[in-house]
Design a protein around this nucleic acid. Sequence first.
RNA 1: CGGGAUGUAGCGCAGCUUGGUAGCGCACUUCGUUCGGGACGAAGGGGCCGCAGGUUCGAAUCCUGUCAUCCCGACCA
Length: 609
Amino acid sequence: MRVSRLMLVTLRDDPAEAEIPSHKLLLRAGYIRRVGSGIYAYLPLLWRVLQKISAIVREELNGTGALETLLPQLQPAELWQRSGRWAGYTAGEGIMFHLEDRQGRELGLGPTHEEVITALAGELLRSYRQLPVNLYQIQTKFRDEIRPRFGLMRGREFIMKDAYSFHADEACLRRTYGAMDQAYRRIFSRCGLRAVAVEADSGAIGGSASQEFMVTADAGEDLILASADGSYAANQERAVSLAPEAVPLASGPRQGGAGEPLDTPGASSIEQLGQAHGLDPTQVVKVLLLLARFEDGCQQPLLVCLRGDQQLNEVKLANAVSARCGEAHGTLLELGPLSPEAASREGITDLPFGYLGPQLPDTALAAARSWQPRFLRLADATATALGAFVCGANATGRHLVGASWGALCPAPEALDLRAAQPGDRCLHDAAQVLEASRGIEVGHIFQLGRKYSAALEATFTTEAGQEEPLWMGCYGIGVSRLAQAAVEQHHDANGICWPTAIAPYEVIVVVANAAEPAQLQLAERLYGELQAAGVDVLFDDRAERAGVKFKDADLLGIPWRVVVGRGAAEGQVELVQRAGGERQDLAVADLQPLLLERLARERQGLLAA
RNA sequence: CGGGAUGUAGCGCAGCUUGGUAGCGCACUUCGUUCGGGACGAAGGGGCCGCAGGUUCGAAUCCUGUCAUCCCGACCA
């Protein structure tokens, strides 16, 4: 392709709308244009990148025996009502764009395709003999993100590869899940990206085991906690660890474990309490009140106990609450702190915030107008493990010292609700410590189990002649996000440095002075020869000064630059590698063999390394 | 949705405090010089000043409303 025909518009200044390097560079180099909030046009250069990524994804998935398909983006509400996700995805902070057709039928614009594929599988897969099957598609997804940002990182319309597998039993699901894990590692390696697999929360998709693939980059939205020995890595949402040891309360239980009152005016936070009365945060049980709102309108107050030095992990809490109430009240729509303002709107004005203790009786909710009149009481295991502790006395300006579970109040169910922190000891080896890094989530694989097949009655006949719901897995890759993540991981002060495997073009031939016939002729010749040799080659034939063309070549991030300049008459050209900036002068005859050899290796991405 | 900010030419910005009919850099067009790291000179083209009301002889500027976009938090590939 000739640059003069490429519709190339590069920007010298950073666009004001972009914040992170990859977003700025994609805009400046003419890869994308914003059309609306979270909506982008993929310009021709980026489309080539996306097609290269897609080709790698296809090759690897086809290699596992997966089948490519294409499912509708317009999806009937009825399908989502059957799976129980319509309300959760459209009401409240739901992310599904939805609309009504001229007949008044409700439709959703697919944010994901579990419903459609499961309904199809239910119709088509009748016997264990047809299993397993793994179907995938590469397609635009629509999500009405609460806050689109960072260009393609979190758009409202984006390209995703999603795959869904169907199995006769769980062991088979596990095998395919393992095969997808391996395929994903190969895909990211082939794209030239450093990626790590981490344990993850299953989120709104549901199901049991799940693993995320993170491209490591400082601008990543996710916090990864990993052990230095490489045997444990998890998203912070999911990470588990050993909490620091608690400092025992010197005097032990007092007043038989009911605790001794202590006047603590003004000490409504753990820090203030600790400073004023010489207490360690690990000696305190703190009580958080939260409110959960469900699909059926039920509003459930929660009383959560944590050890004073620990932070709540809301994802873990939301999972625990869903597990306990989901059956009766449907999807958990919202979970947040129970504020004094919200309480007083309910008619509850006497909650001593800052001095709450786990013995707070349900009668505190007696005045509630629309809330459930009983707390759902949960505790982190670090709190229930305390033999004697300090807690609020449920009266402003007063705490109890030396309280113990049983005597003060029954211990709530002990769960893991705490947020693991960098520096925590690991569960698998207490000598290992969790270290933090940032990542961009580019892939996520799930063992869904039978959640969707049961809801949508997608069953098959087993060898024994029984009707059973299909076992399912689902596997996603954010293709457009991956392209931007690659830029985030591979750029420098001058622009993008694409890994060759996904670069829009592999080589750019730059004619230093297009007015010089010898240069122009040689450049034309090399351009033609490289094309004939199967190289994706750009030819910068513009009547620009050399400096402009060099700057643009760097900004675009083409891995190899061939400069046809002063040495053209003597048959000399210069070869420059974009990443690293290595340059060498070559005889024209040596160029192509050298380039072809390097490209052959680089097209394999990190697999070649 | 809560908190913060910004809307002036394709992009980046000034002008607004103190109202008087819109400017700078880049980009674009033409000509000349230049020609290996975003050249120089000359001459040009391009703006419903986000939108709607209001105040005023007069509004980019003041007032009210509204929309959009971006940033910080909750969601996700």
